[in-house]
């Protein structure tokens, strides 16, 4: 186990650092790592590197990691390989929050901190409803159904608000839903990194409990796991991380679904390895998608959520067509 853990985590961390270096280096004009030490602090290149590219790459790494780790925890919790962080309506709640903010005139541009705040509030409101529902109606199947229904409700309400919006607001809301990693300052990116690493540590600490939960709720209780505390705690952790991701970068789909699947196929179903590996894998995946988004139609850029959807969806179809050795989740 220790050797397998060291090999996978060591190897994937190395790949992640390579991707990070590539992501920071590439853009409108390449700035390779070997010229970084020689850059003048007053130069434009230094500013581009530290104020634009590094925050954007760190944001991609953290958001990919948090979404993917949340996906792997939720798939273990629900014992369902189709669950991802957005299944429970968190993204729907965030979209509704942003649409409301634009419609009521609290926010004018999509990159403002107001839209992040409303997205976070919307996402957490949906999570709070789900947690309240779970307290009254325990059982993960009930919870999953409630989450899907809330997601549909939020989506319908957002569409309603879109139809009532001005064309300018409609464009801003639609662009927000496509996801973007721009507009983060270095301070915001480092704060996000701190939260992501804290979430990762908590995820690892919970990993053995998720392993036991995967045996079934009844068995977990008989083994001394207090599921009435653990299940809401895991839901709260994943909801907070997902809400933060959505508020910072809009809706970036498929990371939380595809990366845990790939990680599980590669390294097995032990969540002590799967959770950190999903985090690193998610970071690599989003860095790669962002690299494509910002370079493929140079000098223009694609919304990263769109690239993620296309790449993630294609990878998922490939996985479905490929014969499977063990069962999922």
């Amino acid at each position: 186990m220790k050797r397998k853990f060291a090999t996978w985590i060591g190897g994937s961390s190395f790949v992640m650092l390579l991707c990070l270096a590539f992501s920071v280096s590439l853009g409108e004009s390449p700035l390779w790592p070997w010229i970084w030490p020689d850059l003048d602090r007053e130069s434009l290149e230094y500013t581009i590197l530290t104020q634009l590219r590094l925050p954007r790459s760190l944001t991609a790494l953290c958001i990919g990691g948090m979404l993917s780790m949340s996906g792997s925890i939720l798939q273990g919790l629900f014992k369902n390989p189709l669950v991802e962080p957005y299944t429970l309506g968190v993204s729907g709640g965030a979209s509704l929050g942003v649409a409301l903010a634009f419609l009521c005139g609290f926010v004018q541009t999509k990159g403002s901190s107001g839209s992040s705040l409303f997205a976070f509030a919307g996402a957490m409101a949906v999570s709070a409803i789900l947690l309240f529902y779970h307290k009254r109606h325990p059982g993960t199947n009930n919870l999953l159904l409630a989450g899907i229904m809330l997601s549909i409700l939020c989506s319908a309400a957002t569409t309603l608000l879109l139809s009532l919006s001005t064309p300018e607001n409609m464009t801003q809301i639609l662009y927000w839903t496509m996801g973007s990693l721009e507009n983060n300052t270095p301070d915001q990116a480092f704060r996000l990194l701190f939260v992501a690493l804290s979430g990762l540590i908590l995820g690892i600490l919970f990993s053995q409990r998720v392993n036991i939960l995967n045996f079934g709720g009844g068995t977990a209780r008989h083994l001394g796991i207090n599921t009435t505390v653990l299940v809401p705690a895991l839901l709260l952790l994943t909801a907070l991380l997902t809400a933060l991701c959505v508020s910072q970068a809009g809706i970036i789909g498929f990371v939380g679904l595809v990366v845990p699947h790939v990680s599980r196929r590669l390294a097995g179903s032990d969540y002590r390895l799967l959770i950190p590996l999903s985090f690193i894998g998610g970071g690599i995946f989003l860095l790669f998608c962002d690299l494509i988004a910002k370079t493929i139609i140079h000098p223009g850029q694609l919304p990263v959520g769109v690239v993620c959807g296309i790449l993630g969806g294609s990878l998922f179809i490939y996985l479905l067509l490929k014969p499977q050795k063990t069962q999922d989740a």
Partner: peptide, 29 residues
């Protein structure tokens, strides 16, 4: 509390699901 109970009482259910966990890890649980 569940932990206290689990130190005294063990339960074997009617059937065990097919889970992709090694036999040793399952027993160690």
């Amino acid at each position: 509390r569940p932990l206290e109970r689990a130190r005294k009482v063990a339960v074997v259910p009617q059937s065990i699901e097919k889970i992709p966990v090694s036999v040793l890890e399952f027993v160690l649980a």
